[in-house]
């Protein structure tokens, strides 16, 4: 039938062309409104009302707001940081809609309390959020850990100790809480404490990113410790031989080292003239504080805690 073909072909052409146009426009609208979806969080003046309006589907809505929070944080972080203005409204709404969504507290708390560019710099809000989570989920010992970690990050060791102590009282609490509570009181600022914290984080979390991050921190701590120790040995060498060693071999020969030292990633440390010890590739050791060349800027903006 000749006429039938006459419609199918132009219709198909129109279909393809108009759909392509719509896709193109969608892409442009997207770029225009990159934050629009999350901005409506500003308009939700009452999360409780929203909860009622969601007609029983608040769990789903909470997931949506949490997803938006993660994307919002990720996008802002990736572009070098910002004011994270919408972070608190988004997290607040998500937690109000579904108070049992513990990830909101676990990650949202640190997002809020860490200083820019890695976070919103609102420690009060961070603490407020996690405390709300604890109130709604009293049997969750991990939330006390999260709270404690926030205080620790803010160097408020007493508050951290208190949080760990509260958590350790729960019947199913991980014993590490008690240990950390004790440790925090006296040696909050110690490197050893930091190592214990990060080890605890690694062991108590099942999230891949969290564990990787903890591992990175532990490696950095080790590197920091190594650099400090190596530079101390260099000083010893200088005192004995009146000159700085030129290579690590010299120090081995002098009996100060057993072999060429390597960092946790397996690369050898570098000995600079003047006695400075450097990490051979600082980019492989995010969070490392010692052993970096002067003027070094991390290649990528690092997430202190995912």
């Amino acid at each position: 039938m000749i006429r039938k073909r006459n419609v199918a072909l132009p219709a198909a052409a129109i279909l393809v062309a108009s759909f392509a146009a719509s896709a193109l426009l969608l892409w442009r609208i997207d770029r225009l409104r990159s934050n629009a979806a999350v901005e409506d969080a500003l308009y939700v003046t009452s999360p409780k009302l929203l909860k009622r309006l969601s007609l029983g589907y608040e769990g789903l809505l909470a997931d949506i707001y949490w997803t938006r929070a993660v994307q919002y944080y990720g996008a802002m972080h990736h572009s070098g940081g910002g004011d994270y203005k919408l972070l608190w409204p988004l997290l607040n709404i998500a937690s109000q809609l579904d108070p049992h969504l513990t990830r909101v507290y676990e990650f949202g708390g640190p997002f809020l309390s860490t200083n820019p560019p890695n976070g919103a710099g609102l420690p009060q809000r961070g603490v407020e959020l996690v405390e709300f989570g604890i109130q709604e989920n009293p049997d969750n010992w991990h939330l006390y850990y999260d709270l404690g970690f926030i205080h620790y990050d803010l160097k408020d060791y007493n508050a951290a100790a208190e949080a760990f102590l509260r958590g350790s009282k729960l019947p199913n609490a991980n014993p590490v809480l008690r240990v950390l509570a004790a440790r925090m009181a006296e040696h909050g600022g110690d490197v050893e404490t930091a190592r214990m914290m990060w080890t605890a984080t690694f062991e108590t979390s099942s999230d891949k990113d969290v564990r990787q991050n903890a591992l990175d921190h532990l490696r950095a701590l080790k590197a920091d410790y190594d650099v400090t120790e190596l530079e101390r040995l260099v000083e010893v060498y200088k005192k004995n031989f009146k000159v700085f060693p030129t290579t690590f071999e010299d120090m081995v020969v002098a009996g100060l080292l057993k072999g060429i030292p390597a960092d946790p990633t397996g690369h050898a440390y570098k000995l600079e003239p003047g006695g400075k010890v450097l990490v051979s590739n600082p980019d492989d050791l995010p969070f490392v504080q010692k052993g970096v060349p002067p003027g070094y800027v991390p290649k990528h903006v690092v997430i202190d805690r995912p």
Binding site: I14, F19, A21
Partner: peptide, 8 residues
């Protein structure tokens, strides 16, 4: 554009 696509 989207409407035209669907109608086609």
């Amino acid at each position: 554009a989207y409407t035209v696509a669907v109608l086609s």
